[in-house]
């Protein structure tokens, strides 16, 4: 297994560029407090976006697509009144989060699925059938 850091100057990055995060878009809305970190991987028939969102109920995660931009957002509230008094260390992030991705043309927007497991959100974006890799015979 090898992990490759995103490199905007790579000339072979057509698909990667398609996945560049869009940041917070709606200036009318209150900006998000934090941005979840993600891994994105490509498989033959799909892309998988994995976001670290520990300690959030699946119902509190909202995933939408609009104009080929996928936005995941939600709220993580870890504040608890009883606990508030005695804090001696607070590093865990709380509040609203948001992150958007521009999906590549091959993305099948109708069949996107999401699963929450062990604090990670996995969004599966299938590729459209006609866009899947095909072997082309060379006639001779």
């Amino acid at each position: 297994m090898s992990m490759i850091r995103y490199n905007p100057w790579d000339i072979f990055d057509a698909v990667e560029r398609a996945f560049v995060p869009q940041g917070v878009q709606n200036s009318a809305e209150k900006p998000a407090n934090w941005v979840p970190v993600v891994d994105i991987r490509e498989e033959e028939d799909k892309f998988v976006i994995s976001a670290d969102i520990p300690g959030v109920k699946p119902d509190d995660i909202d995933i939408q697509t609009e104009n080929k931009v996928l936005t995941l957002k939600g709220e993580r509230n870890i504040e608890n009144k009883e606990e508030k008094e005695g804090y001696i260390r607070r590093e865990r992030i709380s509040g609203s989060f948001e992150r958007s991705f521009r999906l590549p043309d091959v993305a099948d927007l109708e069949n996107i699925e999401a699963k929450y497991e062990n604090g990670e959100l996995h969004i599966t974006v299938p590729k459209r059938k006609e866009a899947a890799a095909r072997k082309i015979e060379v006639k001779h």
């Binding site: 670290d52 969102i53 520990p54 005695g86 804090y87 001696i88 607070r90 865990r92 604090g119």
Partner: peptide
């Protein structure tokens, strides 16, 4: 991992974010 630690009369509670860890 980021942690929160708080104290009450009987002890301490530590919370750590470990996404993806089973």
């Amino acid at each position: 991992p980021p942690v929160d630690i708080y104290e009450d009369a009987n002890g301490f509670t530590l919370l750590a974010d470990l996404p993806g860890v089973t």
